[in-house]
Simulated assay, not measured.
Amino acid sequence: MTKTLRAVSLTALMVSAFAAPAAAELKYENNSGGYVKLYGQLNPAIISVDDGQETETNVRDYDASNSRVGLEVIQPYGANTFQFRFETALGLPNSTETSQLGNDFGGWTRQDIRHVDFSLKGDWGKVSAGQGSMFADGAAEQDLSYVGLALYSFTADSNFSFLFRDSAGVLSGPTVGDTTDDFDGSRRARIRYDTPSFNGFSFGAAWGRNVLADDDDRDYYDFGTYYSNEFAGTKVNAALAYQVREGDGSAKREDLIGSASVLLQSGLSFTVAAGTRDVDSDMDTDPNYYYAKVAYETEDWLPNVGKTGIGVHYWDGADFNTDGSDSSVWGVGVAQRIEEYNVDTYLTYQNYAYDDSTNDFDDLSTIVLGARWRF
Rank of each mutant, 00 (worst) to 15 (best):
A23E: 05
D362G: 13
D217F: 09
G40V: 02
Y352K: 10
V147D: 00
S328E: 09
T96C: 02
G148I: 01
L163T: 14
R6Y: 14
A241L: 05
V262G: 03
V73H: 03
K252S: 06
D326I: 09
A206M: 12
P287E: 02
G125E: 08
R277P: 03
D143I: 00
M14I: 01
D356Q: 06
D137L: 06
D323Y: 06
N159T: 04
W207N: 08
A206S: 13
L38G: 14
S266Q: 08
T88A: 08
A238N: 05
K126T: 05
D112R: 13
D222N: 10
Q336Y: 05
S145F: 01
T322C: 11
A12Q: 04
E339M: 12
N66F: 10
E87T: 13
L171G: 04
D363K: 08
D214A: 13
G208Q: 11
K3I: 15
F105H: 06
G125F: 05
N304P: 11
L120P: 10
L240K: 08
L13R: 08
R165G: 11
A335W: 05
S186Q: 15
Q243N: 10
A45Q: 12
Y354P: 01
Y289H: 07
G275F: 00
N103Q: 14
D280W: 06
G173S: 15
R190D: 11
A20S: 14
S281L: 15
A150R: 03
L26P: 12
I47R: 03
S250A: 14
F201A: 13
P196K: 14
D178T: 00
D123T: 10
P196S: 12
H115S: 10
N210E: 10
A241S: 06
Q83G: 09
Y314T: 07
D104C: 00
N342K: 10
I367S: 02
V279N: 03
N210D: 06
N30A: 02
V36A: 15
Q142C: 10
T96F: 05
R114M: 04
S167A: 12
M134L: 09
G267N: 07
T298W: 03
L347F: 04
S95W: 00
W301H: 11
G233T: 02
L5D: 11
L92H: 07
Y227I: 05
I257E: 02
V147K: 04
D178L: 01
K293Q: 06
K27N: 10
Y226N: 14
E25Q: 12
D323K: 14
